[in-house]
Design a binder for these strands. Structure first.
Lengths: 124, 124
DNA sequence: TACGACGCTAACTATTCGTAAGTACCAACC
DNA sequence: GGTTGGTACTTACGAATAGTTAGCGTCGTA
């Protein structure tokens, strides 16, 4: 039987893939592609703050991992479509679950931050 | 009604929290704490590859976000226990779900990488 | 004849990260 | 009693990583 991965082993390949999928830009790209196919420039606009360099780099990593499918449409000007593979869809659903949870619980999280900062301010 | 967060807005506080929770070390720490309370040095050993500096930094960010609880035990030598808050448990469960999925599908992901590399090697 | 859209890539710079050392406290050992 | 070791950090510095800017090649529009 095949040995499974272990993200807590620093030499396990799963650690690298986890870094791609949970990285700042990788996670946002996967979450966005769950809404449907996007072109490069669309992702650039919708994932606010990403640079062209990082977006290209991120997409290449996700494509290599088999999470994202890349398709060139030979039109003028050239278009490149990115979409989730079946594998990528499963990963993206889990990431989206986390993001949605964070968005829904933002008020709790912000309250915690305020309480922490207030505690720190006292003990100066 | 309260406005919810949006991780795709670069100025939204949820983006910062998402970065802590999905960051390389933050995600691994949360996942590990789902197994139970850990001391600093235990985490350092179990989260292979993390430096003391990054572990301390990561734990402080997660504590401020209200995801991790920190408790000092005044023994000799001093011990510090880290555990998940109820909020942190919910986040950690979602992260763990992603990690488990990656570990379980590692063979698919590696196969995709091999196929990608082979395709690239041809077109040299 | 500019100019901009498009999907990158390369060079350069700013930021972050990892490594190694230091801190302070005490217990146990030689 | 001097050294070593364990604990939880913090600090300084070099290395790696990320962001910024500029450029490419083609074509439609102004």
């Amino acid at each position: 039987m095949a040995t499974n991965g272990d993200v807590y082993d620093r030499n396990c390949p799963s650690r690298v893939i986890a870094n791609h999928a949970t990285g700042q830009w990788g996670s946002l790209v996967l979450g966005k592609l769950l809404d449907g196919t996007r072109r490069f420039s669309e992702l650039r606009r919708e994932v606010a703050g990403v640079s062209e360099k990082m977006l290209a780099q991120t997409l290449q990593a996700l494509e290599r991992d088999g999470l994202v499918h890349r398709e060139v449409r030979p039109v003028i000007p050239p278009h490149v479509d990115y979409s989730l593979t079946p594998l990528g869809t499963q990963a993206a659903e889990r990431i989206r679950g986390l993001f949605t949870w964070i968005e829904d619980n933002l008020h709790h999280l912000k309250a915690a931050q305020d309480a922490y900062d207030a505690r720190r301010a006292e003990n100066v």
